[in-house]
Design a protein around this nucleic acid. Structure first.
Lengths: 205, 205, 205, 205
DNA sequence: AATGAATGAGTATTCATTCAT
DNA sequence: CATGAATGAATACTCATTCAT
């Protein structure tokens, strides 16, 4: 008879827990986060949490996955809409996107992966398959398009797409460790992209 | 026949323990390494370990320091002996040195710092003061020398020495996570240095 | 057939644990009592114990408090109901009460306080405030009433209420140490009270 | 050939260690005192300490014994020289002696015995035999002499010599616990002795 | 579905005691 | 005699996980 007005749907629960867990992991790291904390943050009992996630590790993996998926979609979407030259794309959408990463949840994901990755090979594999590998392939294709277009020379960079994402990883690590010693992330990224473009175009920058 | 249960080797103990601890930390990370394990690896009782290192944390710090110090000395030594042009130095000693890092204990140190750094601010500070800060300053000086010599133009890179160490950090992180997905570290470093030199010299590469 | 492994009895637990702890402390003293033992005696897991008492020290304090509080109430209650002369009160309710102490848990509390007190100043303070100080003040008031009534002379004893509780403390300590060498506690107390009354009344006893 | 000038005789060592141990025990109690500390205080290696005392417990016992013995002798000596009336002796030498106790090492011994006694029955027995029992017997004899002399009536006190030492034990315990709440030990002792004498003499005090 | 009381395995640290030197 | 490096048993406390309600 009595209908609780704010009865939460069970469909929303996993995400709520996942979000709480992300916040906790981001703050204290995986190992130092207690399941109790996550439950409390999510406004949920410990028992319920275990109803949705069989172990702390499962929860961890779910967090990573749920953070990674949206980013992947965003990335893919932008690339599909690319009716511009390779250089334009790199200087425009690509750089915009990349610049947001060091301050985004992705930074946390990277940190968590570095710290806990060795213990979760399947998670790393997932990340590789869905993010890194796809990302590198996409960049490779983009550069290839530039070569075909006549925009770029074919250089070492065609086989080293890592050079374009390097500044992001570096920035994340650097900021993670030496927060206080500020690093101008945007400038680092810009300089690297500039250099790479000059190199590929065979021009002086 | 049988070895004596007690072996007095005051001098060697700390290093033996430190080495055992490094091996253990490298394998399983700091948190997952039990003090018991370290002691057993070092062929030493737990009590003795605590005679030399007051806490697990102290031991951790000692490990980091003992691994970092020799590298610092090596770096410094090479730089002092530099009677060559800036480019020669970058292409020669610098690149040789830098290429050894991803496969060296330094990689482990970086991993440990990333994973445990947030909990050990003084350790991070130590690392910053003795390694990163000094390293960046050294590179900056080198580039400046190149500018003064007329070898290089003055560019963004003069204010972003990070661009030269970026590939090392990236390589370490990449290999740490995706060991199986091989990355040609040497080539990455070479390409980056090539590009930077071309950029600074204002030439095509 | 078999009892369930889990028994939810939130309300009773603290007291059950406290009682088990008292028994253990009484038997072996605080330092020599292992938390494990207390848990086992209480039929409870160690973890649960720590759910209710944050540290062994907290548990210790709770034990002392739970033993002291009822006594305090008993004492206060009797004094409030005193519509008799001071002498009658001292010879009646007071002596009855005091005679029960050496064989009661209070003896254990005193022993624990003596042994562990120096390490738990706040506990000693608590005991002072709630028991000793109040007890002495009560006796002082009683004696004063006797003086005002004309029952007693004003003597040194008015400023030394300790003389009335001395035999209790002495008995406890004596029995604690030399259990085998019997001491007639009751007689000791009676003699002392007799003497004090004679002294205060200015009569021969 | 070379003769160390300050070579300590082995006869002095045990006492030096015993004294250091007493200081340590008095400060921190038996359980909280580390053998290391005692050795350091005594300016001696841990190994040497174990050459003289087989265990920490042995050391403890030796400390108690070495502190008790001189007191016993002092007590005995004074009693032997008693060519005065019982009352004169009680008011003079006895009270002088007794007043020194609460501030003397005896207080520490009592504290240690209370805290550790239950674990060291033989030590308690030793203390009973050599101190308490002899002390009570001596007082009993003294009071008896008073009765024979015609100084005193025969009262309950003749069978309760404890009444005379009670204030000392009480003072020690009280000061041990409530150091801050000062108690005028001397006055307590005097009042008690006064009362007892009046009682025994059948006079008003 | 939901709770949170209850479990118990896991671990850093201390310290009395031993023994190679 | 003398040292102090080395041992190892002992113990408080944590936290992921379970399950009676």
């Amino acid at each position: 008879m009595s209908e609780p007005r704010f009865q939460r749907r069970k469909e929303e629960r996993p995400q709520e827990i996942t979000e709480a867990a992300f916040a906790a992991f981001a703050e204290k790291g995986y190992a130092a986060t207690r399941v109790d904390d996550v439950a409390r943050r999510a406004g949920v009992s410990k028992g319920l949490l275990y109803l949705y996630f069989r172990t702390k590790e499962e929860l961890f993996k779910a967090v990573i996955r749920s953070l990674v998926m949206p980013r992947i979609d965003a990335l893919t979407a932008r690339i599909d809409s690319a009716d511009m030259s390779a250089e334009e794309f790199l200087r425009g959408p690509f750089m915009d996107f990349v610049k947001t990463l060091p301050g985004s949840p992705v930074a946390v994901v990277i940190r968590l992966l570095i710290a806990e990755g060795p213990k979760h090979p399947d998670l790393v594999q997932f990340y590789w398959d869905n993010v890194v590998s796809r990302g590198l392939a996409t960049i490779t294709r983009l550069l290839e398009r530039g070569v075909v277009n006549g925009e770029f020379r074919r250089t070492q960079v065609n086989e080293m797409p890592h050079l374009l994402i390097m500044p992001v990883v570096f920035s994340v690590v650097f900021k993670l460790l030496f927060e206080e010693q500020s690093l101008d992330t945007d400038k680092l990224i810009e300089t690297q992209v500039d250099m790479l473009l000059a190199h590929m175009k065979g021009e002086l920058s």
